[in-house]
Design a protein around this nucleic acid. Structure first.
Lengths: 224, 224, 224, 224
DNA sequence: CATGAATGAGTATTCATTCAT
DNA sequence: AATGAATGAATACTCATTCAT
């Protein structure tokens, strides 16, 4: 819709400017929040310090969020949106369920890596998140799990995957992706993300791929 | 030794009574703490509420701990001691590294199950634990990992285990044990511990055991 | 300098306004503190009550001081600064050591009278003041004593003062000034400050001035 | 009185034993209290610490006093009783008011020296003492002052003392005795009690004794 | 829109006192 | 009489949130 079509054209423009500013301000605030949250956790992050770190006033923060908890939710929401966007996108168009699963796992791990702090917070600050937020997170995880378990079931039907419990197996895959955030203090000194992904993919694929198919997927299974 | 043999007989008795009371009181307090911590988390658990729940006065709590944080440390310490006690005990005397690893993993999972709340707290309340406490936890995890990675390396030398990175693989095993606590909300509706253990053991063993040995360990690998 | 001359004009203005507000708030708080301290002492003065008395909130108090003790220190500091300002000023320019001493003593007594509560607190709340604060107070008293003992030694050299121990004599002078605060419950019903000063000055001068000079200083010595 | 003479003999004996024990216990407690009070002040002296210092249990302390404040009162009472006992005793039988005043002042200073901590406490802990206790202390000080002011008035009638305000002069004398406790941190490095007494007595007597009598009392007036 | 001073409910910790043993 | 574990009222200090400028 062009501006001239709309009698509220410039109002719309003003709206757009406003939305852009909100976006920009929230960006400032959330970037600062991620930093402080990863350093100190939610409880110890003071709004005062956040304001200083973000270079805005306390009042300004409350113009963009209603509660301190909102900040946490926004940060965690960010990673949720990324999962939703990246994982299906990476899996899309790949016919073979084995390769599709591998692509999904890789994408999932990369999202975790890109939002390591947020991924950790989802575990650490559960108790600071409202019941609604918590349930939303769980729903999302179940949803992502289902992408994986769909592949696993498809693979099992084709005889490419050994018989496993799809619910545990898919849950294990997400767990191993999260592990990159949860055990980063331990893993970081030994691997980079790409190596970690290949290593875990090899582990998982050895467990999943049926004996007779292991050779066909040696590029996934073998990790030198 | 009869009392009359010991000139400090009753003094020793008094000491013993005191130690027993301390044990008993701490038990009362920690049981209540585990309940409140799992319901509300550390920050929201008020000392006042804890006292009420434990059926003692606030002052009494502070006769047995110095700080609120101490309560958290004691709870977490409990699971640490259990790991230390149970896991090596379960592995002891088993020659075959494959079976030894399986025994260790089973024991580890059972400890997690018995202290599910504490296992969760170790992830959730990291930021409420002092640097020292946190480092102690990490040291312990590395230590337990080494039990597993020792088995894995031994198994690899015997050719029973496929070539894997022992550090990741052992870390993955502990992660999967912790998963029973972390994803209990999801797993609980589908499995009991024993089923979970067998399922994950099967998964892990398929990934670890070298092709030619898979049949010999079918009791571990197959999960119907 | 007009605002337009100064590119930081309004910034400087903001700073000035802020400084003025701090001054004003601290004034409010300290005035209330002096009242409550004199009525109840430091320990019994509750921050809650202080806030009520000062007509501000508890939080506001803590925006201007870091600790309850700070309030005490600020009150006591006030009298210290007054001593430092008033006593040397009163003595300055007076050549004759006898008259100079008299002027100093008068000024000292008037400062005590103007800050009677604070003068008392310096005696009563020593144990509530940190080691540093306490040592600072002692150093100041020694410093003020030295103003007096300098006069006494000068007067002795001129033969106008009898041979006395300058350290005790000067200490006695400060003690007698403080006495107006310490024994106010007793002295108040009989004298006003001016009378008290003349009376004690007469007492002290009789003790200090050498016999042959007593007549020359009859205006100090005689007290009708 | 032998036990057999008195049917209540052993009861009386038991009473005596009890009284003696009370005396002994209180002695233990008060000695410990004086130590802790002088080190930490009343508020910071914990009953727990006092019990430890006195080598008794907390419960035992409360068998001999009703309140923590009682301990303070007992300590301060001690010095009060000493004043009452020692000062009149020292003055008794001395006809000449000048010498009588000197004897009283000396005795007063010695009591202060013997109970330095208690003398200080009477100034520092006023706010911790109940209204009744406080008023009792004031009454006593006025009473002691009157011993001194009686002498001064007698001396003035005889023409031996110059015309002074007896109320201030006697108050000043007690103040100078207390000064030994209040400024002990300052005086201690320079004098012992005896020297302090002679020095202050010389100062005071120069101020009080009429010119024509100064020579007759040179033993009091001169301080080499 | 932005600011940051003011607010005050909320909470860990202390310590005099009691009382069952 | 003596003990010392248990009590719980009391209190300094914090920090998310508001709102006048």
């Amino acid at each position: 819709m062009s501006e001239s079509d709309n009698p509220n054209g410039n109002l719309g423009g003003i709206e757009a400017v406003r939305a852009a500013r909100i976006e920009w301000r929230l960006g400032q605030i959330l970037t600062a929040a991620v930093k402080l949250l990863s350093e100190q956790g939610f409880q110890k992050m003071l709004i005062t310090d956040l304001a200083k770190e973000a270079g805005v006033s306390v009042g300004t923060i409350y113009q963009y969020v209603d509660t301190k908890e909102d900040i946490l939710l926004l940060v965690v929401n960010d990673i949720i949106e990324s999962y939703r966007r990246e994982v299906p996108a990476a899996m899309e168009g790949i016919e073979d369920p084995v390769e599709r699963l591998a692509a999904g796992f890789r994408a999932y791990c990369l999202v975790v890596d890109a939002h390591r702090t947020a991924a950790l917070l989802a575990y650490q600050e559960t108790k600071s998140i409202s019941k609604e937020g918590r349930e939303r997170l769980m729903r999302l995880e179940v949803e992502t799990n289902s992408y994986f378990s769909d592949c696993i079931q498809a693979g099992m039907r084709l005889g490419k995957f050994a018989a496993v419990e799809p619910a545990v197996a898919s849950g294990t895959l997400t767990m191993l992706a999260h592990m990159w955030a949860l055990k980063h203090w331990y893993l970081n000194s030994m691997f980079d993300v790409q190596t970690y992904i290949r290593s875990q993919l090899s582990f998982v694929m050895k467990a999943l791929i049926a004996g007779e198919y292991q050779k066909s997927y040696s590029h996934l299974v073998n990790f030198s």
